[in-house]
Computed example of a mutant assay.
Amino acid sequence: MKLSAPLALLFLLCADGSGSAVSHPKPPCRYPPSQWCRSLEIAIECKVQKQCMEVNATRPNQAVPPVSVTLYYESLCPACRVFITQQLFPTWTMLQDIMAVTLVPYGNAKELPSPNSPFTCQHGEPECRGNLIEACIIHLTRHSSLQIIYCMESAADVLNAAKPEYSEENEDKAMSSLFNLVCQLYKVRTCLC
């Protein structure tokens, strides 16, 4: 198992009475600091096993790929909403360093043309609209899409929770005072989520 850590070592030079510099003795370790956490044996020999364990406990093992979770769902499906808000998002919040999430709206949609859409959704046209909004969010925001979709799915009204995402009015406000707009939208979202 390869363990590495960006440990910094500070060498102090002390002045003796004559003004010349004398270095402190080196630690009883034959490895450079960059390799101290490379293995447990090296960490023990260099007497830094506690520090190496602390550093490595906060970082995932890069040699192990993250767990992939793909969710096919519908935006207005009650069971999907419960799963996203009570299982998926809380788990991802705690384990996002070792978890890769892919969201696929339209999980139960059918390609049956209707008057307003090329899709027919299990919970009707509003769900197709919600699925379309969430698909656009996923496409445009990538890494932050799960937070936005969680906000929507945990709201009492999924479609209305999506409305503050974009408007020409917000674009104008952003151009004149982005700081004020961000604060205003933050207050709105804390009420919706």
Rank of each mutant, 00 (worst) to 15 (best):
S4Y: 15
A5I: 04
L9P: 05
L12N: 10
L12E: 13
S18Y: 09
V22D: 09
P27K: 09
C29R: 07
A43P: 02
I44Y: 07
Q51T: 11
C52Y: 03
V55M: 09
N56R: 14
T58F: 08
R59P: 00
R59S: 07
P65T: 08
P66A: 03
V67G: 07
T70Q: 15
L71K: 07
Y72Q: 12
Y73H: 05
L76E: 05
C77M: 06
Q87T: 15
Q87N: 14
L88A: 04
T91C: 13
W92V: 10
T93D: 09
M99I: 11
V101R: 01
T102S: 15
Y106A: 03
G107W: 01
N108G: 03
N108S: 07
L112E: 15
S114I: 10
S114K: 11
S117M: 07
S117Q: 06
P118G: 03
P118W: 04
F119A: 11
E125G: 02
P126Y: 01
R129H: 09
L140C: 10
S145Y: 04
S154E: 10
E165D: 08
S167K: 03
S167H: 05
D172V: 10
M175E: 15
L178K: 04
L181F: 00
L181I: 01
Q184N: 10
V188I: 09
R189M: 07
R189G: 09
T190G: 08
